[in-house]
């Protein structure tokens, strides 16, 4: 009677000539891909939007002022950002605090909920003069997920700003 000859598959597979380095590389790539996929840690940044002479303060209050707008920008939607800011002027190495804000809460922008724009910080200046400013701001962002992330930024080197509207 005919009996089929069993094919000895297992030894053939074991003997497959796949280089060890290739197996190691595939495993390594797999681990990296999985980790990158999992690293969705949210991140937020606080930035100064180039301090400038404020024409809007001039129009509203008839006063000359330098405005320090800030934006917190996150990789996820936020509920709001809370912030304290200090603005100082520097003259011949002497620092004079011009504004020390209370803790302010700013809702996320309705147009882009990953951002919150702080548009209320300004200090008076003398028309035509140039002053050097320092500033630091720190606070935290409350994300919609409920997570809170600390943010901070500063202007460490004296920044000279002319107290005059830009010529049109």
């Amino acid at each position: 009677m005919f009996q089929p000859k069993p094919i000895n598959l297992i030894p053939k597979l074991v003997q497959a000539k796949v280089p060890v380095w290739l197996v190691a590389a595939i495993v390594a790539v797999d681990i990296v891909v999985v980790q990158v996929g999992q690293s969705h840690e949210p991140n937020c940044e606080l930035t100064y939007q180039s301090p400038h002479y404020s024409t809007s303060v001039q129009e509203s209050l008839r006063q000359d002022a330098i405005k320090f707008n800030l934006t917190s920008n996150c990789t996820e939607n936020q509920t709001h950002t809370e912030l304290k800011i200090t603005i100082s002027s520097v003259d011949e190495g002497l620092e004079k605090v011009l504004l020390k804000s209370n803790l302010v809460q700013q809702d996320a922008s309705k147009k882009d909920r990953t951002k919150a724009h702080f548009l209320e910080f300004w200090v008076l200046c003398k028309r035509g003069g140039t002053e050097k400013y320092l500033s630091n701001a720190h606070g935290s962002v409350l994300l919609q997920s409920g997570k809170r992330i600390s943010v901070s930024n500063s202007i460490d080197k004296p920044l000279a700003i002319l107290c005059e509207p830009k010529a049109k």
Binding site: N102, L103, V104, D107, A108, K110, F118, L119, E120
Partner: peptide, 27 residues
């Protein structure tokens, strides 16, 4: 609004209200 339309802004407020002593110490 006075003379011109005001820009749209999202809501801002002091975290500590004026009736809270924490307002004066800033928390």
């Amino acid at each position: 609004p006075k003379n011109k339309d005001l820009e749209e802004r999202s809501y801002a407020m002091n975290v500590y209200p004026y009736y809270d002593l924490n307002y004066y110490s800033n928390g």
